[in-house]
């Protein structure tokens, strides 16, 4: 059986909120290392990969592999009943029909309990190879969100060019063009404001801004976002969570002119 207790419901609320517009029905794969999710959007352009390590829960118990097929719209409805600060416990039997969610308020003696019916989801699983990326950029997640939103006002696509001069986000649209260039930057007092560019070779790739703006819904999960690029492979956008847990998005590039 599964029993996983989160100190704050907020974490799961934010994760589900960040991915629910991209993917609808997902298997939450539970085993003794934690709870993982991998799902592609309908157009097979973007992929979500979430890992909530067992260390992110206290306690965490999962005796055998359990796949919880959950509709994220249903999960969102139930999670809306949880206060951000509530303790959240997920429970399921070994061959479950439902997943049980319990929300406990630390301040009052209120305990809420919900069951969500599970679905049989036959999901295609993609193997994501370990990749040595040509460029890795760490930057404030709010900055990345702002750049994507600003450029989306002009164009559907953004080119991300990384060279030793810095990283340039550029777009061209009907009304004109725009670009934002960032250079490496260290803020000793506020490390969350750092921009770090790790480059082994120059990279230039084009991506759909619609998807990037969608990924940025995860910005509240982490002060920093990591972008990993290599020529002609999908972009990795990673929001690191506590205890080595993470929320990752992969986005296939636009190719050719």
């Amino acid at each position: 059986m599964l029993e996983a207790r989160l100190e704050q419901a907020n974490l799961l609320k934010k994760v589900v909120d960040a991915i629910k517009d991209l993917v609808q029905d997902c298997n939450f794969d539970c085993n003794d290392s934690g709870i993982a999710l991998q799902a592609m959007d309908n157009s097979h352009v973007a992929l979500v990969s979430m890992m909530l390590k067992s260390e992110s829960f206290s306690p965490f118990r999962c005796d055998r592999n359990i796949a919880l097929g959950i509709n994220l719209t249903s999960l969102t409805k139930v999670l809306r009943a949880a206060q951000n600060e509530d303790i959240l416990t997920l429970k399921a039997e070994d061959a479950p029909d439902v997943v049980n969610l319990v929300f406990e308020s630390a301040e009052s003696d209120r305990i809420s309990e919900y069951d969500i019916k599970l679905m049989d989801i036959d999901q295609e699983h993609l193997g994501i190879p370990e990749t040595e990326y040509a460029a890795t950029i760490s930057m404030p997640s709010a900055e990345f969100q702002r750049i994507c939103r600003d450029l989306m006002a002009l164009s559907e696509s953004v080119s991300i060019e990384c060279s030793k001069e810095g990283v340039k986000f550029a777009c061209q649209g009907d009304i004109g063009s725009g670009s934002v260039t960032l250079r490496s930057h260290t803020n000793v007092d506020k490390p969350e404001m750092n921009v770090e560019i790790d480059l082994t070779e120059p990279v230039s790739l084009t991506f759909s801004l619609k998807y990037l703006v969608g990924f940025c819904k995860a910005s509240s999960l982490s002060g920093q976002v990591k972008l990993c690029l290599s020529n002609e492979v999908p972009l990795l956008v990673e929001y690191a969570l506590a205890n080595n847990s993470y929320l990752r998005f992969y986005l296939a590039p636009k190719i050719g002119d």
């Binding site: 992929l47 193997g127 994501i128 190879p129 992969y250 296939a252 190719i255």
Partner: peptide, 14 residues
């Protein structure tokens, strides 16, 4: 204009 590629072009189903 550039064409949108799909993930299967890069990642194999397992």
């Amino acid at each position: 204009t550039a064409q949108q590629s799909r993930l299967e072009g890069f990642f194999r189903p397992v």
